[in-house]
């Protein structure tokens, strides 16, 4: 009995959270289109999220491309279809692996960062201080960050994809003496707009989710240092979950229309 009521409470809390997140999201759009616009802070956040995540994304992308190719090669070799390697790897990278891996990495780095930063700002009354000094903290902190992730994640994904393809090329080159131009000719022969564009649109939503959940968790952080930890942690967990849900929906929609 106790357990079932606990479960009911958890479910209720879950829906409350979803509702709050939806409200938070709608507030984001309301504030996004009202003046003033914190352009300078947006640039700063873009720099923090874009440039500073670049190294991580490049390394991860490179390794993923490398590993994917090394793992797939034996199977294709059995069919004598090594020449299909570039097309196969490139499609899986561009459609799925590049976006989701980059987004997950950024959820870990940026999402938790936002959660912790806003959380500690809330706890140490910095958000209140901002409000008092006439700056709308939602605009200054949340809008800029969510916008920055929404804009930066797609660009990071381009970098990640490129690096993954390059990693894949290296393996091919070492194994089969495939030239750079042949490899990328094959890659771009295999990829179509119907691969690249839905995947790119998807990444905007990924970025939006990372920023939104991170900000939501941080902005409504509970008091105390424990609250900050929870905010950072749950930001990553919720974001990762949300990323897969968005990915599922995106694939579903792509499948229907293309």
């Amino acid at each position: 009995m106790v357990q079932s009521s606990q479960l009911a409470l958890n479910i209720k809390n879950f829906f409350i959270e979803i509702g709050e997140l939806a409200y938070f999201s709608s507030r984001f759009f309301r504030e996004l289109f009202s003046k003033p616009f914190e352009f300078k802070e947006l640039l700063r956040q873009c720099y923090n999220m874009g440039n500073k995540s670049l190294g991580l994304v490049l390394i991860t992308g490179f390794i993923i491309g490398l590993v994917l190719t090394i793992q797939t090669r034996p199977t294709l070799e059995q069919f004598g279809a090594e020449s299909w390697m570039p097309s196969m790897v490139s499609i899986s990278i561009v459609r799925e692996i590049g976006p989701i891996i980059t987004a997950l990495i950024c959820a870990g780095r940026i999402g938790s960062g936002i959660g912790a930063e806003l959380g500690s700002m809330r706890v140490t009354e910095q958000i209140d201080a901002m409000e008092v000094s006439g700056t709308n903290p939602f605009k200054y902190l949340v809008v800029t960050r969510v916008l920055a992730t929404t804009l930066m994640i797609p660009i990071l994904v381009f970098f990640g994809d490129t690096m993954a393809l390059y990693g894949s090329f290296l393996v091919e080159n070492l194994n089969g003496d495939v030239s750079f131009f042949l490899y990328f000719d094959k890659v771009f022969h295999a990829i179509e707009y119907s691969d690249l564009l839905p995947a790119t649109i998807k990444t905007f939503f990924f970025g939006y989710a990372i920023g939104l959940v991170g900000c939501y968790k941080g902005y409504y952080c509970e008091k105390g240092t424990v609250g900050v930890g929870i905010a950072a942690n749950s930001a990553v967990v919720y974001t990762s979950m949300l990323l897969f849900i968005i990915d599922f929906i995106a694939v579903f929609i792509t499948d229907i229309f293309i």
Binding site: E117, M121, T124, E125, Q126, V132
Partner: peptide, 11 residues
């Protein structure tokens, strides 16, 4: 308004 913990912007 002077906040209890100073509330300086860390960043």
């Amino acid at each position: 308004f002077l906040f209890q913990g100073s509330a300086l912007y860390d960043s």
